[in-house]
């Protein structure tokens, strides 16, 4: 609504935006301040707002309490592996959905929508049983397969929307020049669909990096846990070592937030360009 209203309307815009920013920032500020407080300060009643003493050393000592290096490595392996597998499978599926007519197409699309409804948590018992059968518990590879599988609906849907916006003629020109269909997809379609693919990659990566429930249920070996599940070590029976919980939380969250500052236009841009509603 690019129309100028009264100054009350302008004031309302600023007030709503400011309140939104404050509420969103609040947990991150709490996370940061609490991560540098010492034990005595965390448990003081009433709590302090700003840290009295800045224990930045928490960020060094935390590495001695849990195998954080392993957790970073595991989270990176699972996130990269699941993203790569998921997108590699979703590209041909998205292409087939966008370009081909085949018997049972409508049924397949409904099947895809229905699988999107199922979050891993509602299937936990079945998943646990199947992963036991395949000896894929306590396995990063098992997690990669599962996360990629649950991501298929979203990724192939998004990519099929992106592929549908690309002109068929370019692809046909390539076929006339002697490319097979597969070559045409690799040389013509994929480069043109790059923004949509980036969006799909971002969504898959975030989902996998932040995955919690499956890792919690399937991984019990300390050295195979991810950052998110590893943090649970600081939740004791009687008290919680909050300062370490939050040092790890920030170390987990910052790489993602920094990555986003660089590529934030793709996060939403690709979603609308791809015509995915939702």
């Amino acid at each position: 609504m690019n129309v100028n209203y009264s100054k009350w309307f302008r004031a309302a815009l600023y007030i709503i935006a400011a309140i939104t920013c404050l509420i969103i920032l609040y947990p991150y500020v709490v996370m940061f301040f609490s991560s540098v407080k010492g034990m005595d300060e965390i448990y003081r009643i009433p709590g302090t707002l700003l840290p009295e003493k800045w224990n930045l050393s928490n960020y060094l000592t935390v590495w001695k309490h849990i195998p954080l290096g392993y957790y970073f490595r595991n989270s990176a392996i699972v996130a990269c592996g699941a993203t790569a597998l998921s997108i590699t499978c979703a590209i041909p599926t998205g292409y087939a959905l966008a370009r081909m007519n085949f018997p049972g197409k409508k049924g397949f699309m409904q099947f895809i929508i229905i699988t999107q409804m199922f979050a891993p948590v509602v299937l936990l018992v079945g998943i646990y049983k199947i992963m036991m059968t395949f000896h894929l518990t306590n396995s990063l590879f098992g997690l990669i397969l599962l996360i990629a599988a649950f991501n298929q609906a979203f990724s192939s849907w998004l990519l099929s929307g992106t592929f549908a916006t690309i002109s068929r003629e370019l692809e046909e020109a390539a076929t006339i020049d002697g490319c097979t269909r597969l070559q045409a997809v690799i040389r013509v379609i994929i480069p043109l669909a790059a923004p949509g693919i980036v969006t799909a990659v971002i969504h898959a990566f975030i989902g996998a990096w932040n995955e919690y429930t499956l890792t919690l249920v399937l991984i019990s070996d300390t050295y195979k846990k991810s950052l998110n599940v590893g943090i649970r070590a600081f939740f004791g029976y009687t008290n919680v070592e909050w300062w370490y919980v939050f040092t790890c939380s920030l170390l987990t969250t910052l790489p993602i937030l920094l990555l986003f500052q660089a590529i934030d236009k793709y996060i939403v841009g690709g979603l609308t360009a791809g015509g995915v509603k939702g």
Binding site: P27, S34, I206, N210, Y212, N228, V240, V245, T252, T253
Partner: peptide
């Protein structure tokens, strides 16, 4: 949206 649900939950549990 980019922060893991578990971490968001931890912060609010503490807050």
């Amino acid at each position: 949206w980019a922060t893991s649900g578990f971490i968001t939950a931890c912060v609010w549990k503490y807050a």
